[in-house]
């Protein structure tokens, strides 16, 4: 099991990019997985004729899940997301190749010894910036540390 520890992380460090070719199935699968039955996530005519968008598009909880996958691909399973905030500036549609990119914006060890990393993440389709995200993620301070063991006042997301 790979473990990224905080001493391996520096401000300005880039995360590896993740690219995914979005299809209608990607959109519908994500909506189904998040029990989101709103028709703009599965019904082309509703999305285009009612919402005025160009196609069906990725829903919010599924985007959150994509951010989770992107972050923990980098941290490994000991990484524990404390907080993430994202803004959907434009929609991601079938036919888009969405590319996740991220940068480390800060590192700290809090008062109870938990290591934290700040991340800025973007999702772009070509030159179109679709989403921006900031995340606060706990990662181990050494090879025996486990952020998941933190409870109550020892966990400050």
């Amino acid at each position: 099991m790979s473990t990224r520890t905080i001493d391996e992380v520096t401000v300005g460090q880039a995360l590896p990019e993740l690219a995914h070719d979005v299809t209608a199935t990607t959109v519908v699968l994500g909506a189904l997985a998040s029990r989101d039955w709103r028709p703009m996530h599965h019904d082309y005519r509703f999305a285009t004729e009612r919402n005025g968008t160009q196609d069906i598009f990725l829903n919010t909880p599924n985007l959150a899940a994509w951010f989770e996958r992107y972050i923990t691909d980098w941290t490994g399973p000991r990484g524990r997301i404390g907080r993430m905030t994202f803004r959907m500036r434009d929609s991601v549609f079938p036919g888009d190749r969405m590319v996740f990119a991220g940068t480390v914006t800060g590192t700290e060890t809090d008062a109870v010894g938990c290591g934290w990393v700040g991340l800025d993440i973007t999702v772009a389709v070509g030159d179109r910036l679709c989403c921006t995200c900031t995340a606060r993620v706990a990662i181990p301070v050494n090879e025996t540390d486990n952020p998941w063991a933190r409870r109550g006042d020892d966990w400050t997301p």
């Binding site: 899940a65 989770e68 691909d73 524990r80 998941w148």
Partner: peptide
Amino acid sequence: TLAATENGNPLYWDDDVAAELTGGMTMPVS
């Protein structure tokens, strides 16, 4: 959700990893 995002985090697929790190299976935080 894991399949929709092709998320292979062993924390959610491997009972032994989940037991070691979180004391048992947990759900994807998102």
